[in-house]
Design a protein around this nucleic acid. Sequence first.
DNA 1: CTGTATCCACGGCGATACTG
DNA 2: CAGTATCGCCGTGGATACAG
Lengths: 137, 137
Amino acid sequence: MEHIPRTAPVGALTGPCSRWPAEHGETIRQIIERAGNKWAVLIVSSLNCGPLRYTDLLHSIQGISQRMLTHTLRQLQRDGLITRTSHPEVPPRVEYALTDLGTTLLVAVTTLIDWAGTHHDEIQDNRTRFDKPAATS
Amino acid sequence: MEHIPRTAPVGALTGPCSRWPAEHGETIRQIIERAGNKWAVLIVSSLNCGPLRYTDLLHSIQGISQRMLTHTLRQLQRDGLITRTSHPEVPPRVEYALTDLGTTLLVAVTTLIDWAGTHHDEIQDNRTRFDKPAATS
DNA sequence: CTGTATCCACGGCGATACTG
DNA sequence: CAGTATCGCCGTGGATACAG
C-alpha cells in the first residue's frame, strides 16, 4: 500500500509536509462509510463476544430497528467483515460472526473509542466554554 | 476510563465475554459524529501540514462546499480540535490550525486510514464476489 | 477574502405491517 | 425466528446568492 509514514513529529514542519496522495480522499470516504457508520460499529462491537443471532443483535444493540439491522448486516457481510450462517431448522436460526477482517476493523475502531473515552470530558468542556463566551464578570 | 483490554484472543470465548458497559453506546455515537464525519477527517488531515487559510482548505479539500467547510470548521473549533486566528488586515486573512487535541485525533484517525489502505483491495474483492454469486458455469 | 442565508434534493432511518 | 416492503419524517449537504 505504501502510505505515508506518520512517525515524524507533527510540529516539525521543516520539509515539504507529507500528505496523502489526494487520491486517498476517495479511500477515506470508503472507511468513513464503514467505520463512520454508527450501527456498523455497534454491530461489530457486539460480535466481539462471539456469534450472535438476529434477535440477539436486535436486543443487544439498543435502539436499532429491524430495517437498519438487516441492512447493516448485509453491508458488513458484503464487505466480508462478518459471516452469515443459516441453520436449516424449524424455527430458523441465523448466526452472525466476525471474520478475521472484521476483527481487524474492530481493533482499529477500538483505537478511536479509546480516544473518545480519553478526551470525552475535555471536549465537553471545550464545547461548554465555546457556547458560553460570556461569564467574564 | 477503564475500557476492556482487547488483548485477549477473540476466538477464545471461555469466560463471560467482556464488552463495553453499554453506556458507551452513547460515547460511540459521539466519536462517530467526529471521526465519522468525512469533512471533519479531511480537514484535520489537511491541517496536519500546518495552518491553512479558509480558501486554501476550500481548494485543498476537493469537493467540499463553502457551507460544509464553514460548518465543520466551527464544529472542530467548538470541540477544541482546531484554532481560528483572524488577522485584522484589509483583505481579511483567517488561519486554521490543529490544536494538540486535534493532533491526537489525527493520530487516532490515521489508524483507521491505514486500516483502510491495507484492506481496501480485499474489501473491493469481497464486494465484487458478493454481488456476483453467479458465474458458476 | 471570509463567511452567512436560503432553497431544495437525496438518503438515512424509524415505524409499521406482512411473509416464509 | 428472521426477515421484507412501504411510507414518511428529517437531517445532511450541495448550489446559489448575498454581505462585511
